[in-house]
Design a protein around this nucleic acid. Structure first.
Lengths: 174, 174
DNA sequence: ATCAAGAGCTTCGAATTCGAAGCAAGAAGA
DNA sequence: TCTTCTTGCTTCGAATTCGAAGCTCTTGAT
């Protein structure tokens, strides 16, 4: 990383600029997600989590297994079971057995689900544009995408936590 | 989550690069925060939220009011009341009336609280360094800090559509 | 001074989360 | 085939979260 880290005893502290990156990152995302959630609830009666699930499913005509879905949105398995239940009850997705694997549950979006997505998407884009895209110029937006993709891939590829059992990727929320 | 091209009706969406910025941002932060939370619970028995609160308080010798604290960490007032109760019960903070305003509650960190912070801080830095700082070079890290600071300030300055005041206070952390 | 409006916290109820434990279906192997 | 291990998902209990409503103190206007 940087060659001029601050040292306090044995502790190698990141310099203030690096700290700023971390703080600004988490704070900005928290603010952003809150606003996004508000818009989705107001215009479509769904949470940000549910929207992400629907969007993920929207891109797959065959449907996805619960595990694929959970990994896609960075979410716990049990949390996904809960949300999938809500979405199914609301008629926005269907759940059925996979023909390939009796254990697996295939989740697919319904026409009604797509209708909801179509209803909230313009507002969603509007909010993200106002809060994120309007905050930075195009060059920075591209840099941001590149950098955060790098970070995401880096974290995804990290070796499993120290002493844990076999290779199994975790997924959990905020 | 990497996505295909979403196309709903004839709604024009931000180009793929812009979408990538948004998705990579939220996904990477979710992954990062989960790992941070795990480390803090393992080494200090506190959650990421509690750590942020302690770090914020750590920078203030006089203590902060509940509102200042909640704004600093981007958190609901009622949620903060709950967490402050836990921290007080654990002896990590004290709560007392403000001399200036009978209504206000001043929260201050205790020596025991500082001790916990000191215990978990090295590991916290280690985790963030491995997951975030090691993922990008120094120039990109500086760019990231600059861009996200811009975004944060932009969102903070947005008219909150109807809600109460948003105060600017540095969040916790490393 | 008194009343009304506002500010700061907490309480309350409902919703959401996660991890651990449990259950059922595949896979491996002897 | 018959264990035994693994995988995919759900259930369960406990913790956390938020917004709305409530309480107390402060401020502003009359």
């Amino acid at each position: 990383m940087s060659t001029d880290d601050f040292m306090i005893g044995d502790l190698r502290l990141p310099d203030p600029g690096q700290l700023e990156a971390y703080f600004a990152l988490t704070e900005a995302v928290a603010l952003l997600q809150h606003q996004v959630d508000q818009q989705l609830r107001a215009e479509g009666g769904i949470s940000a989590v549910q929207f992400e699930l629907l969007m993920t499913l929207n891109g797959s005509s065959t449907g996805l297994t619960m595990t694929q879905l959970a990994d896609g949105v960075v979410y716990s398995r049990s949390g996904l079971t809960y949300q999938a239940g809500l979405l199914e009850k609301a008629g926005l997705v269907t759940r059925g057995p996979s023909p390939e694997d009796e254990r697996a549950t295939l989740v697919a979006i319904t026409p009604k689900g797509r209708e909801i997505v179509g209803r909230v998407l313009p507002g969603h884009i509007e909010v993200t544009r106002k809060l994120l895209y309007d905050a930075v110029d195009e060059a920075d937006l591209n840099r941001l995408g590149r950098i955060m993709s790098q970070v995401r891939d880096h974290i995804r590829s990290e070796p499993p936590r120290s002493a844990g059992p076999r290779r199994r990727r975790r997924a959990a929320g905020i």
